[in-house]
Simulated assay, not measured.
Amino acid sequence: MDFEEKTLKSEVIYDGKVTKYVVEDVLLPNGKQSKREIVRHAGASAVIAFTDDDRLLLVKQYRKAIEQISIEIPAGLKDTEDVDGMTTAKRELEEETGYQAKDWSFVTSFYSTPGFTDEFLEIYEAKQLITVENPLPKDEDETIELLALTFDEAWAEYEKGHLRDSKSVFALFYWKMNRIQNK
C-alpha cells in the first residue's frame, strides 16, 4: 500500500525565530486532496544530567503555551553553528545549570509530535558533573530555577502534574528503568 502524500503546493505563512509555519496542499494516496498545517523546527537536544549523589538536574520555568510552571530536563534548540546534537546538549547543560559533564552518552532520539511538526529531539545522559566557574549566559528570555531532585522527589513532581513534557517524562521513566535494572 502506498502511504506517501505528494506535496502540490507549499506556502510559508510565518517564519519566526524558532519555528516556521507552513500550509501544504497534498495529494493523498487515494487520489483526493487535503491540507496539512506543519510547524518546521530546526531540532533540539535535551540532557538527563545526574549528580554524583544520584539527583536529576531539572529546570523550573513558566511555559506560556500551557499557561503554567513546568519542571523539565535541560534542553534547547540547535543553533546553526552546532555540528551535532551533542554540541547542543553540552551548551544547554552549561547555560541552564552552570554545569559541564565529564561523562556523556547518547540515549535516544525521536520526533516530538510528527502529526504537525518535524521537530527532532536528541537526548543525552550526562554524569560526573563539574561546576563551571563562569558558565555560558542563560538566554535573555528565560527565567529558570535549577532543581536537583531525588528520584522520589522527581516522581512526586510528575504525580502533581508539574513534570509533564514528553522529554522529561521520558527521562523519568528512563531513570526508573535503570533503577530496576540495577537492583
Rank of each mutant, 00 (worst) to 15 (best):
F110W: 10
A154I: 10
R63G: 14
K138A: 08
R40F: 04
V132M: 04
L56M: 15
V83M: 02
A148W: 00
Y124R: 02
I123N: 03
K90N: 03
M86S: 10
A148P: 07
I69W: 13
G43Y: 11
I38Q: 02
T143K: 14
E95I: 13
L57Y: 03
E81K: 12
A101E: 02
E142M: 14
A126W: 08
I144W: 08
D103H: 07
E37F: 10
T131K: 14
L136H: 01
Y62H: 15
E153F: 06
I73N: 01
L149W: 07
T88Q: 13
R36G: 11
V59E: 01
L121R: 02
L146P: 01
T131F: 04
A154R: 03
M86R: 10
E119T: 14
G161Q: 12
G161M: 02
D82N: 12
I144N: 05
A75D: 00
E145T: 09
V39Y: 00
L77D: 06
S105A: 05
Y158M: 12
E157Y: 03
S109Q: 09
L56P: 05
T117R: 06
E37V: 06
A49H: 07
T88A: 15
A126N: 11
V47Y: 01
K78T: 14
Q68M: 15
L147H: 13
D152G: 00
T150C: 09
V47E: 03
I71H: 02
R40L: 13
I123C: 06
K60F: 06
I48R: 00
E67Q: 15
E95L: 14
P135T: 09
T113S: 07
Q61P: 00
S70K: 11
L93S: 10
I130G: 05
F110P: 04
I123Q: 05
D82P: 00
P135I: 09
L77Y: 11
K64R: 13
G98M: 03
E67R: 14
A89Q: 05
K64M: 12
N134E: 13
E140F: 14
Q68Y: 01
T143G: 10
K138N: 02
R55G: 14
Q128K: 08
R91D: 07
G85S: 01
R91K: 12
K160S: 05
T108H: 09
H41I: 05
A156T: 13
I38Y: 02
R55M: 13
L121Y: 05
D52V: 04
P114G: 13
Q68E: 10
S109R: 11
N134Q: 11
A42S: 13
L149Q: 07
L93C: 09
A42G: 09
Q61D: 15
I71N: 04
K60C: 15
L147R: 10
A75H: 06
Q128P: 00
I69R: 06
E72N: 15
W155S: 13
E125I: 05
S105N: 06
K127Y: 04
V107L: 08
I66R: 05
E96P: 10
V132A: 04
F110L: 11
F120M: 12
I38A: 05
A148M: 00
A126P: 12
S112Q: 07
I144Q: 04
L58V: 12
L93R: 04
R40C: 07
I66E: 13
K78I: 13
F106E: 02
D53N: 15
E96G: 04
I71T: 09
S109E: 12
Y99N: 06
T51I: 05
G85H: 01
